[in-house]
């Protein structure tokens, strides 16, 4: 074990922040669906994988310009999310928790199978959004892609906040999250709101995949790890709390990056250790008000 100097520390912080922004997006996707339905969607990671793979196909194979490729990926995964809700979740709405857990696990196996069938099992590269010249800051170097990721995540968060606080649809979705039956009574089409939350969650996942794949490459099974870490981030921040999801994501990314700097073999264990500690010591997370369920 060797202690890092200041420049290295800065480097870890930067990559941690970037990775953490991606976790935050995935965690927000979990939060949206959890608030609307009480379900933890085990297929969330597959949303990320599909976002990455669709973006890669559009940009590399079809040669479309980058913004269009990302847009198609996001729209495609949003449709996928809505389809998942309609085909697998709605028919089992009154089922037990175990049943719902297994349904989303089944859906994730199904989607991974599709991904491997369509894109094969090799890791696919994706070019950077703009340039690959690193920018030097205080001994550390940042890729333009890092800035893209953090910037896009910030814009997305702002857009989500506006949607939730300022628009009719957003208020209706939040009303359904608080009390579905009551929302229905005042005339909100609750089942459409649930479908919308799956579509939105798909958008977030798809976007997360599309912006991270230039750094991480795209592979059919990339969703397993990313999905689980997004969930760990959501738990850390407090399940059901959007601000908590973002905070949890960023914290987890930085913890992981610093931890890997000290002991690389245990990098992947950090997220799960943090999740276990939070689940056992404070199941409501850092910001969550609700207790364990």
């Amino acid at each position: 074990m060797n202690l890092p100097d200041a420049a290295q520390l800065l480097q870890y912080l930067i990559s941690g922040l970037t990775l953490g922004s991606v976790y935050a997006m995935i965690a927000l996707g979990f939060t949206l669906i959890h608030n609307a339905t009480g379900i933890v969607n085990f297929a969330q990671g597959e949303f990320v994988a599909f976002g990455a793979l669709i973006a890669i196909s559009c940009s590399t194979t079809l040669g479309l310009p980058m913004p269009l490729a990302v847009l198609i990926a996001v729209a495609g995964v949003a449709l996928l999310g809505a389809a998942l809700e309609r085909a697998a979740i709605r028919p089992a709405r009154r089922a037990s928790v175990i049943t719902l857990i297994i349904i989303t696990i089944g859906a994730s196996i199904f989607l991974r199978g599709i991904a491997m069938w369509v894109w094969g099992s090799d890791a696919l590269p994706m070019r950077y959004f703009s340039g690959d010249e690193p920018i030097g800051i205080g001994g550390a170097s940042i890729l333009p892609q890092h800035l893209w990721i953090v910037g896009i995540v910030l814009v997305t968060m702002a857009a989500l906040w506006v949607l939730g606080e300022k628009t009719q649809v957003g208020k209706a979705m939040r009303a359904c999250a608080v009390d579905r039956d009551a929302a229905q009574l005042v005339g909100i089409p609750a089942s459409r709101m649930v479908m919308l939350s799956f579509a939105l969650s798909g958008m977030l996942g798809g976007l997360a995949g599309a912006i991270v794949c230039p750094l991480a490459m795209g592979q059919w099974d990339m969703g397993i790890t990313l999905g689980l870490k997004g969930f760990a981030a959501a738990i850390l921040g407090g399940m059901g709390n959007p601000v908590g999801a973002v905070l949890g994501g960023v914290l987890l990314g930085i913890l992981e990056s610093l931890g890997a700097g000290f002991w690389s073999g245990l990098k992947n264990a950090i997220a799960f250790a943090v999740m276990l500690i939070v689940l056992l010591a404070r199941p409501s997370g850092l910001l969550g008000a609700r207790g364990r369920q």
């Binding site: 028919p91 297994i102 199904f110 199978g113």
Partner: peptide, 13 residues
């Protein structure tokens, strides 16, 4: 895996 996942969801529903 596609069939596997599909069957799993269908059984549960």
């Amino acid at each position: 895996p596609i069939i596997f996942g599909f069957v799993l969801v269908a059984i549960m529903i």
